[in-house]
Computed example of a mutant assay.
Amino acid sequence: MSRTHRLFQLMQALRLMPPPATAADLAQDLGVSPRTVYRDIDTLRSLGAVIDGSAGFGYTLIEDAALPPLSFDTDELEALVLGLREVGEVGDPALVKAAQTALSKLRARLPAAQAHRLEHAVLTARRYARMPEPGIDVSALRQATWDERTIRFDYSDAEARATTREVDPLSIVFMQASHCLLAWCHLRRDFRAFRLDRMRHLELTGASFRPRRVPLLRDYMARLREEMTPADPAH
């Protein structure tokens, strides 16, 4: 781990750990010695980060110089908290962690009164039904979708019928109680939705379908809206 990367990781740990974070806890999180943590804290302070505390008492990040000043009105702040907490409830493991990090970054740059409001926001999100675990690396799937790369995976439908699918991934959506991949399926030559918990053995084929993702997704969403529109009783 380079020193620059270690300093970045230390800032992340200070944002995420309940204050005050002890040098021992920080050292364990980073895989370094407490002495290294002491030196890195001094370096971060010299770079402008306001970090309260000292050896033996723990450290609290007061102001994060790496982030620009932020200001939100009350409703904006509630909306941000609600959105990030919803991600924490329904997101895949990587997005859950990203939502926690985003909240910690917001907290570090808000004025004291707004930071308090963020910590004790009125709105929240709770889902008590357990989300099915994805059967593939969702981060890799998101990257393939963004890069417009054709993928291949094994899939089991609701009747446990197994197939191998090659698809152009278009979007990942939360539907009812599971995450689904919206895609153009090469096998069916049509649009299909695939539950992530039924997918296995994701791999890239090496083929690109750029720049067709946006128009394909637009066509798929138009079809879904059409299917959900009630038929006119006069016809």
Rank of each mutant, 00 (worst) to 15 (best):
3 R>N: 10
7 L>M: 02
8 F>H: 07
8 F>T: 00
11 M>C: 07
13 A>R: 06
16 L>E: 13
17 M>D: 03
19 P>T: 04
19 P>A: 15
21 A>L: 08
23 A>C: 01
24 A>M: 05
27 A>T: 03
28 Q>Y: 08
30 L>I: 04
31 G>S: 05
33 S>H: 10
33 S>R: 09
35 R>V: 14
35 R>E: 14
36 T>E: 07
37 V>L: 02
46 S>P: 00
47 L>W: 01
48 G>L: 11
49 A>T: 03
54 S>K: 15
56 G>I: 10
56 G>F: 14
60 T>H: 04
63 E>C: 05
64 D>L: 05
64 D>F: 04
65 A>R: 09
67 L>C: 09
70 L>F: 02
70 L>Q: 06
75 D>E: 10
75 D>F: 09
75 D>N: 09
75 D>W: 00
77 L>M: 08
77 L>A: 06
78 E>L: 06
80 L>G: 05
82 L>P: 01
82 L>S: 02
84 L>D: 03
85 R>M: 12
86 E>H: 03
86 E>A: 11
89 E>V: 04
90 V>F: 03
90 V>K: 09
91 G>E: 11
94 A>L: 11
97 K>S: 10
99 A>M: 02
100 Q>I: 05
101 T>F: 05
102 A>S: 14
108 A>Y: 06
110 L>C: 04
112 A>N: 08
115 A>Q: 03
117 R>M: 13
117 R>L: 14
129 A>P: 00
130 R>E: 14
130 R>L: 11
133 E>F: 00
135 G>N: 06
142 R>Q: 14
143 Q>N: 13
143 Q>L: 15
146 W>A: 15
147 D>F: 14
150 T>F: 03
153 F>D: 01
153 F>N: 01
156 S>N: 10
156 S>G: 03
158 A>H: 09
160 A>N: 15
160 A>G: 03
160 A>D: 13
162 A>D: 08
163 T>S: 15
171 S>V: 03
175 M>F: 00
178 S>W: 01
183 A>W: 14
186 H>V: 00
187 L>E: 12
193 A>T: 15
201 H>P: 00
202 L>S: 02
205 T>H: 06
206 G>E: 10
207 A>C: 04
208 S>I: 06
208 S>F: 11
210 R>C: 09
210 R>P: 00
211 P>T: 13
218 R>N: 09
218 R>M: 07
219 D>E: 12
219 D>W: 04
221 M>F: 04
226 E>C: 09
232 D>N: 13
233 P>T: 01
235 H>N: 02
